[in-house]
C-alpha cells in the first residue's frame, strides 16, 4: 500500500517545552484519520509540521515522498475559521479562489474560476457563490473553507477542527461530504471530540506528546485513560441532552 505521510522519530519543543517526542507514524494513501488529544497535546503542532510551517528539532518527515515544503501545493488545508476576520469584504467565490493562488501567475484564469465553482458545488454551496462570506452561518463557512482546500485538487486534505462551533446536523453533513471525498484523497481531521469522530473515520491518531496510532475499533476506555492520564467521559452522540438535563433514552 502506498504511504502518503511518514514521520520517523520526530521531536519538537517550544521554548524548551517538549510538545512532541519521538513520534513515528505512517499514514497510507486514502486513509481517513482523526487526530485527537487534549488541548496543548500537540495536535496543531503535528499539523503544522506536516504543512512545513515549522521544522522538527529531530527526526524526518516525508509527505507524498518528499519534504513537507515541496509537497505543500498538493495539500489542501482548512484552518479553523475562528481565526479569520469575519468583516472582510469577500464573496464565497473570492475566498474559494484563494485555493488557486500560484507562485507563477498573477491573475485567476477561466480554468481557476471553473475549478473553484466546481469545488463550491461539491460542498453544496453553489447557490451562494456570489454571497458575502461574512453573511454565512458557521457551518456554511466551514464548507466554503473545505471548498477552498479542495479547489487546488489536493492529494491530502488536512482539516483543523472542522466541527468546532457547528450543530449536530451540520457536522453530519460535513462528514458525509468528507466521506465522498475520501474515495480519492487521504483525509486528516483534527478534533478534540474523540467519541464523535471515531464513528466516521477509519483510524484515530491520539496525540499527547507521544503519538499512538489506532484503528477505530480499538478505541476503548482504558486506552483513552492512558492517553489523557485520567478518566474521560465518552461523548455519546447516539444520545441527546436537553437543557433540563440528560435524557437517557
Amino acid at each position: 500500500m502506498k504511504t502518503d505521510i511518514s514521520l520517523n522519530n520526530v521531536s519538537f519543543a517550544y521554548k524548551k517545552q517538549p510538545i512532541l517526542e519521538n513520534v513515528t507514524l505512517t499514514i497510507p494513501h486514502r486513509e481517513f484519520a482523526s487526530i485527537v488529544g487534549p488541548n496543548g497535546g500537540g495536535k496543531t503542532t503535528l499539523l503544522k509540521l506536516l504543512l512545513g510551517l515549522i521544522q522538527p528539532d529531530k527526526g524526518d518527515i516525508q509527505v507524498l515522498g518528499t519534504s513537507p515544503e515541496k509537497a505543500r501545493e498538493r495539500l489542501g488545508y482548512m484552518p479553523q475559521y475562528a481565526h479569520l476576520d469575519m468583516t472582510f469584504p469577500a464573496t464565497v467565490l473570492d475566498v474559494v479562489l484563494m485555493g488557486r493562488l500560484k507562485k507563477s501567475t498573477f491573475w485567476f484564469s477561466r480554468k481557476d474560476r471553473d475549478q473553484a465553482l466546481s469545488a463550491i458545488k461539491t460542498v453544496d454551496m453553489a447557490a451562494f457563490a456570489g454571497t458575502g462570506f461574512h453573511e454565512l452561518s458557521g457551518g456554511q463557512k466551514q464548507r466554503v473553507l473545505i471548498a477552498r482546500a479542495l479547489c487546488g485538487r489536493p492529494d491530502i486534505l488536512l482539516l483543523d477542527e472542522p466541527t468546532a462551533n457547528v450543530d449536530h446536523e451540520t457536522e453530519e453533513n460535513l462528514f458525509s461530504i468528507l466521506q465522498d471525498l475520501n474515495r480519492d484523497m487521504t483525509i486528516l481531521v483534527v478534533s478534540h471530540d474523540l467519541g464523535f469522530v471515531s464513528k466516521y473515520v477509519k483510524t484515530v491518531i491520539c496525540v499527547n506528546r507521544q503519538v499512538v496510532f489506532h484503528p477505530t475499533t480499538l478505541v476503548e476506555g482504558t486506552m483513552i485513560k492512558d492517553i489523557y492520564y485520567g478518566d474521560l467521559k465518552m461523548v455519546r452522540h447516539d444520545h441527546r441532552c436537553s437543557e433540563e438535563g440528560h435524557c437517557n433514552d
Binding site: L51, L53, H83, L84, F88, M98, L101, K103
Partner: peptide, 14 residues
C-alpha cells in the same frame, strides 16, 4: 487579498 484575509493559507500556496 490572500495576505490580508488568511496569511497562513496564502503562504501554503507558495
Amino acid at each position: 487579498f490572500g495576505v490580508c484575509f488568511d496569511n497562513e493559507f496564502t503562504l501554503l500556496r507558495g
